[in-house]
């Protein structure tokens, strides 16, 4: 069982012929929380999109193993059913599709995939009630269409709520902190922390150190221009906060 949950090896990827990831290496084990930090445009969301299997992103080199399996071979829905969850930086609105209905369909797809029985409406509802408490999500969000007319904060909370219900093995959170005020940030971070277990991993993408005051990472990686240029413990985040990306980079890129 010492197999890593996620192994990214020399990953090169781009979109529309533009090279964005230029050789990313990263290993995540079960039970760990990893943070990826980097300035805007460094490729953080691209990395998340490639891991989730978004169409249009082309992998030109390297490989990604998820629990030992070739992740890049799988359809996006298969990755999801295998336990890869992406909390979107910009959650998508789906008018007309009820949030509860949507989430029940998603959970049952995952359960079917695992060979478990599907939950009926009553069973699902009691599960949902329990998970709502973790996120302090207003009940009427569930009655509305998926993200339709949600405030920025509600959308982000809804992402983590879905994560709570779907219980992924690998959760990738793309700038879940952006657009949240400090109170909402605390609620969301608490939620994420409660979902941490020995058999799952969290991959937290953020631009600001602020989030890492609440979600304490085991490892911090700095992504710059499509490469991980520095990795370290949680103190690296503070260092970045103090000195900024630029100074770190100029220091880093200077030949020894």
């Amino acid at each position: 069982m010492n197999q890593p949950m996620l192994e990214i090896k020399n990953l090169h990827a781009g979109v529309e012929g533009k090279q964005i990831l230029k050789g990313v290496d990263l290993t995540i084990n079960a039970g760990e929380v990893h943070a990826v930090m980097g300035p805007n445009g460094s490729g953080k969301s691209t990395l998340a999109a490639v891991l989730a299997g978004r169409e249009g992103y082309e992998v030109t080199e390297g490989q990604v193993l998820y629990c030992g399996k070739d992740l890049l071979e799988m359809d996006p829905e298969e990755r999801a059913r295998e336990g890869v969850f992406l909390a979107f930086q910009y959650p998508v609105e789906i008018p007309g599709v009820n949030t509860t209905y949507f989430l029940k369909a998603a959970l049952n797809e995952i359960r079917k995939h695992k060979g478990e029985s599907e939950l009926d409406a009553m069973e699902f509802l009691s599960l949902v009630k329990e998970k709502m408490k973790i996120l302090h999500l207003p009940e009427d969000c569930l009655k509305r269409s998926v993200n339709d007319g949600f405030s920025g904060g509600e959308k982000k909370r809804n992402e983590i709520f879905q994560m709570a219900v779907l219980e992924p093995k690998l959760a990738i959170l793309d700038e879940t902190d952006s657009g949240l005020d400090i109170d909402a940030l605390k609620v969301v971070s608490e939620g994420v922390n409660k979902l941490k277990r020995l058999d799952n991993a969290q991959f937290v993408i953020t631009h600001y150190q602020r989030l890492l005051n609440y979600i304490i990472p085991d490892y911090v990686h700095v992504l710059f221009d499509g490469r991980v240029v520095k990795s370290g413990g949680k103190e690296l985040a503070l260092e970045l906060e103090e000195r900024g990306y630029e100074s770190l980079m100029s220091h880093e890129l200077q030949p020894a």
């Binding site: 989730a52 829905e77 797809e109």
Partner: peptide
């Protein structure tokens, strides 16, 4: 929208 659904396990 389709990708969002796919990412939640829905074909």
């Amino acid at each position: 929208q389709i990708f969002y659904c796919n990412q939640r396990g829905i074909a």
